[in-house]
Nucleic acid binder design. Structure first.
Lengths: 182, 182
DNA sequence: GTACCATTCAATCATCTGATTGATGGATAG
DNA sequence: CTATCCATCAATCAGATGATTGAATGGTAC
């Protein structure tokens, strides 16, 4: 496999496991089975490697954002898509949580996180308008504000709650959310 | 001032500023103007110091949770209380976010965070029932589920969004939330 | 074949970091 | 006065950590 990509993926997995706090370049190199100097050959600094992880994680999430399914069901499909992602790639939300926290002290990361948030909100706003027109939900007074609120809730749900909270609790909250906006 | 308390508070502030990732015992001692050995005199290990910070932060948040105001206005007062806290002590939510993330890898912290969450949810459940009885909001089918959802949203709102998002955006989302449950 | 370039490694550096040690000053009790 | 304990400090340790260096290997161009 491509070394550069393998290193990013290893770093991604280690961040998911130990947070930024526990990320060590040595561990990343070891996980790929490569010398530390090789890591520095591809990523001159640890910071550059982290940038790679940011791109990898955000790209991975972006692909989930793309609407699909029959027009009237797109909103529900969006929730289902997020929930499926949380089941298949729980690490992704852990890493995104770490990135959100880090964005507080890192302008570059903050900008990237914000961009993804905005795309997410715009997507959701469109889906809300769509669903309202189809009669699937009540017409919200301000779809964009509702979308922002929903994004906030989903972030809190998937990025902050530990897996101590079983998947059932997450499903329950998702259903409660759908009921609330219906 | 009490040394032990001063050290905890300094650590608390440094975590708010640099996250757990950037917490250094030396910096904590320096901030109090004390030798590193003195820090270790009061807290044998860094982990013990962090436990102190956990207690400090959570205690600080608990006091905000206590209901107050006229019966019919308690729900609104709760939101107002949280919002005020976010204005006067923004660091508190930063630290709580850090703790939530760390709870994923630390059973002890996870338990404490979960306890506070449960108290928060119970408080909110009672307030929702109260508000419904007073006719301030529609009677929710499952107040406890709604409460859990609101807690999730508030956590996402205050613990994940950087201050890049101006306070106005936070106010807007809070109002949208109040409108949604009314 | 030789020169060149990309990739990788073993060894090492400089610094950071949590923690320990032994000593010192001051307060208190007998 | 002296023995004892508390609080604090300067100095230091051992291990961790990000990064660098110089050499080896293998492939490609000419």
């Amino acid at each position: 496999m491509d070394r550069q990509e393998a290193l990013v993926q290893a770093a991604y997995e280690l961040i998911a496991e130990h947070g930024f706090e526990g990320l060590r370049t040595r561990d990343v190199a070891a996980k790929v089975g490569v010398n530390i100097a090789t890591l520095h050959y591809y990523f001159p600094t640890k910071e550059k490697l982290i940038r790679g992880v940011v791109g990898y994680a955000m790209g991975r999430f972006r692909t989930t954002l793309q609407p699909s399914g029959s027009p009237g069901e797109q909103l529900r499909a969006h929730f289902a898509g997020i929930r499926r992602l949380a089941r298949t790639d729980p690490e992704l939300f852990v890493v995104m949580g770490e990135l959100a926290m880090r964005g507080r002290r890192d302008r570059g990361i903050a900008a990237i996180v914000r961009d993804v948030d905005i795309v997410w909100e715009k997507t959701l706003t469109a889906l809300l308008r769509h669903a309202a027109k189809e009669g699937a939900i009540a017409n919200p007074a301000k779809p964009d504000e509702l979308a922002a609120l929903i994004v906030t809730t989903l972030k809190g749900l998937f990025m902050l709650s530990g897996d101590s909270r079983d998947p059932k609790a997450i499903d329950r909250q998702l259903h409660a959310l759908e009921r609330l906006i219906a």
